[in-house]
Simulated scan of single mutants.
Amino acid sequence: MMLTRHLLDNKTFSFSRMCFLVKCLKRLKSSQQWLSRQKADPYVEKAKIYNYRCRSAFKLLEMNEKTNILTPGLTVVDLGASPGSWTQVAVQKTNADGADPTKPRGSVLSIDKLQIFPIEGATIMSNMDFSTIDAHDKVVEALGGKKVDVVLSDMAPSATGVKELDKDRIIGLCYMAIRFAALVSRIDGNLLFKVWDGKEVPILEMDLERFYKNIKILKPKASRSESSEKFILARGFRGIQRPLENGRWG
């Protein structure tokens, strides 16, 4: 009996060790593929040259070139901003750092659960969940009564490897961004956020049409061809109906 149990324990141990080794090999292969892709990616090198924190800066630069949603003097909030490349672009395009004294000076506020190292011209709120009431109150306070012209979001959840679950999670982030934008945006303000392609996207677009005048799908060249990501630009915020004291809706 003891010998049988010993053999079973050894088999179990061997099987567990084999599974562990297989997982390690998969991770090693994935890491090697990622490194190879990074070396071959021209946007990675460009990010270093232009001092952007990551290659995603060029996605926003390209989309802004086509849509012109970021201009000097605007107030911008960047959700899930870490490490801060979209914030860097927003600061440059809105003149939030005052680099050009001949143009209006905008303002950029960036928020993330993770740490964001300082960026000149931006107000940084690290280690903060934008979906909470506390975060919303702090954002409103930091804005000093100003309404927001543009809400940006390049957020995506950490991949679990389960395709449907990952899609559900990013859709959840999208709706959080929409809700936040509705609470802080001025009338005719804009919202730009990332989503992964799927059957939920048309429903998301229909929901956005209730609050925005125009919805457009964007796929910048800087977005990798094998990636299912795309961006939704919602323009012309209509506002939200709020009950007034006399019982009528505004």
Score class of each variant (00 low, 15 high):
M1F: 11
M2W: 01
T4H: 10
R5M: 09
L7W: 02
L7A: 14
D9R: 03
D9F: 03
K11S: 12
K11N: 12
F13A: 15
F15Y: 13
M18R: 15
M18N: 12
L21F: 11
K23E: 13
C24R: 15
L25R: 14
L25Y: 13
R27M: 13
S30A: 14
Q32A: 11
L35P: 01
S36L: 11
A40C: 13
D41T: 02
Y43V: 03
A47Q: 09
K48S: 12
I49L: 14
R53M: 03
R55L: 00
A57K: 00
F58S: 01
L61P: 01
M63H: 05
N64T: 01
N68I: 04
L70I: 09
L70Y: 08
T75H: 10
V77H: 06
D78A: 09
G80D: 04
A81T: 01
Q88K: 03
K93T: 01
T94W: 07
A96G: 15
G98K: 08
R105S: 00
L109R: 08
I111K: 03
L114I: 00
Q115L: 12
I116D: 05
A122N: 14
I124S: 05
S126E: 12
S126K: 09
F130V: 11
A135R: 10
D137V: 06
E141Y: 02
A142D: 00
A142I: 00
G144E: 15
K146C: 10
K146M: 11
V148F: 10
S153E: 10
S153G: 13
D154L: 07
D154I: 04
G161C: 13
V162G: 00
E164Y: 06
L165T: 11
D166P: 10
D166K: 15
D166Y: 14
R169A: 09
I170L: 04
I170N: 09
G172F: 11
F180D: 05
A181M: 09
A182Y: 00
L183R: 11
V184R: 06
I187Q: 11
I187T: 13
N190S: 15
L191H: 08
K194M: 11
V195N: 12
W196L: 11
D197S: 15
K199W: 05
E200L: 14
V201F: 02
L204M: 15
M206F: 07
E209W: 01
F211Q: 08
K213F: 01
I215P: 01
K216F: 00
K221D: 13
A222K: 06
A222S: 12
A222N: 05
R224F: 07
S225C: 03
S227C: 08
S228I: 08
S228R: 14
S228N: 13
S228M: 07
S228Q: 14
K230F: 04
K230R: 11
F231K: 06
L233M: 07
L233D: 02
G236W: 03
G236E: 05
F237Y: 15
R238G: 03
G239P: 12
I240D: 05
I240G: 03
Q241Y: 06
R242P: 00
E245V: 12
G247P: 03
G247A: 13
W249Y: 10
G250F: 04
